[in-house]
């Protein structure tokens, strides 16, 4: 790791540039969210899919007094 700030900046810039080349060549995009798999019944009737609740999917239960989600209705 160079101690020269300018060299550090140059190497970091070249590394970022290399990543840009990689993105350009592969069309890479970021990824977020979770992945699940659906049985045949859901594939035939997508409305019947029962989602997984959790923070990472953005399916966040609202904290309210009484009641809650009623899903899958």
């Amino acid at each position: 790791m160079p101690s020269d700030p300018l060299k550090l900046h140059l190497y970091a810039s070249l590394a970022l540039l290399a990543f840009c080349v990689f993105v350009m060549a592969t069309g890479r995009t970021p990824d977020s969210g979770q992945q699940d798999s659906a049985p045949l019944s859901v594939r035939e009737n997508p409305a019947s899919y029962k989602p997984v609740y959790g923070q990472s999917t953005g399916w966040i239960p609202i904290p309210i007094g009484g009641g809650g989600y009623s899903s899958g209705k």
Binding site: G33, D36, A38, R43, Y49, P51, V52, G58, W59
Partner: peptide, 26 residues
């Protein structure tokens, strides 16, 4: 957001893969 939350799932009806993109915030 206080009245409800919207959930989105992208379902591949060919392979069964399901993608759950995080589209909503607090």
């Amino acid at each position: 957001r206080g009245d409800g939350v919207v959930h989105v799932a992208l379902i591949n009806t060919t392979s069964g893969a399901v993608y759950l993109p995080p589209l909503v915030s607090y």
